[in-house]
Computed example of a mutant assay.
Amino acid sequence: MKLSDLILLSIASLAFFYIQLWDEHIVTPLYLSSLAICSLYGFYAKNLNIAHIAGFIFVLNTAAYAVFELGIINDVTPEENKILQSSLIYGVQLFFSLTTVLVLIFRVQLSRVFSNSKSIELIHFDGIFHWVYLYTSLVYFLALLEDLAFVLFDMKSWTLIYDNFEGLIYISWALCCGALLTMMICEAKSNRSGEANAL
């Protein structure tokens, strides 16, 4: 099986798996665990590029998850103010997603702030992850507009994003995990070929 086929199969499998579970209390910890494992693998393999890409995504997603799990949004907004509550719920998610986009675009510069290793460089995979989070940001933005239309203008038929919200986000998480898995496989293959050439 070719590497490209393996990548597509892993992305499709993860997307199918996440969507079948369809419960954010199960899928989100699974996703965060996958990110943590990828980051730890990067440190174990002494590849700071992998460790930092997965680590930055992990930290920002964990922060967003903590905001909602701790009930901070519900604590600061009154129950009866649906517009403020809707704006904060989707707005905070959009903020974290756009922050992730910016962090991933400037990943090399940020990595050099945390480490002075000469191995930190722009890699091919740096051009992938910010697109995944741009897609996620678009989903959050459309969900915000749809919810505001529902609350402000009583447009009850506009529920396309709301009805499919988890699935749309799970697709982006599957793409992210698939790209991380591919990055680790490519790194392991290049290490093996480097060792073979050294012999």
Rank of each mutant, 00 (worst) to 15 (best):
A63W: 00
A63Q: 04
A64I: 01
A64E: 14
A64K: 06
Y65P: 09
Y65T: 15
Y65R: 10
Y65N: 14
Y65I: 14
A66N: 12
A66Q: 10
V67Q: 05
F68N: 09
F68H: 11
F68Q: 08
F68C: 08
F68M: 07
E69F: 11
E69Y: 12
E69A: 15
E69T: 14
L70V: 13
L70M: 11
L70W: 07
G71V: 01
G71R: 07
G71S: 06
G71D: 06
I72D: 09
I72A: 08
I72T: 12
I72G: 07
I72F: 11
I73K: 04
N74I: 00
N74M: 01
N74T: 04
N74K: 00
D75M: 00
D75V: 03
V76H: 01
V76P: 04
V76K: 02
V76F: 10
T77L: 06
T77V: 15
T77D: 04
T77I: 14
T77Q: 01
P78E: 05
P78G: 00
E80H: 13
E80C: 10
N81S: 10
N81R: 10
N81E: 11
K82A: 07
K82G: 06
K82P: 04
K82F: 07
K82E: 10
K82H: 11
I83H: 03
I83G: 03
I83C: 05
L84T: 12
L84I: 13
L84D: 11
L84M: 14
Q85K: 12
Q85M: 15
Q85L: 15
Q85W: 14
Q85C: 08
S86V: 06
S86W: 01
S86Y: 01
S86L: 05
S86M: 04
S86F: 06
S87C: 13
S87Q: 10
S87T: 15
L88Q: 03
L88C: 09
L88R: 01
L88G: 02
L88N: 02
I89F: 09
Y90I: 01
Y90C: 02
Y90N: 08
G91S: 08
G91K: 05
G91H: 04
Q93M: 13
L94A: 12
F95I: 09
F95R: 03
F96P: 02
F96T: 07
F96C: 02
F96K: 01
S97H: 12
L98P: 03
L98W: 07
T99A: 15
T99F: 10
T99P: 01
T99R: 00
T100M: 13
T100Q: 11
T100F: 09
T100D: 10
V101Q: 06
V101F: 08
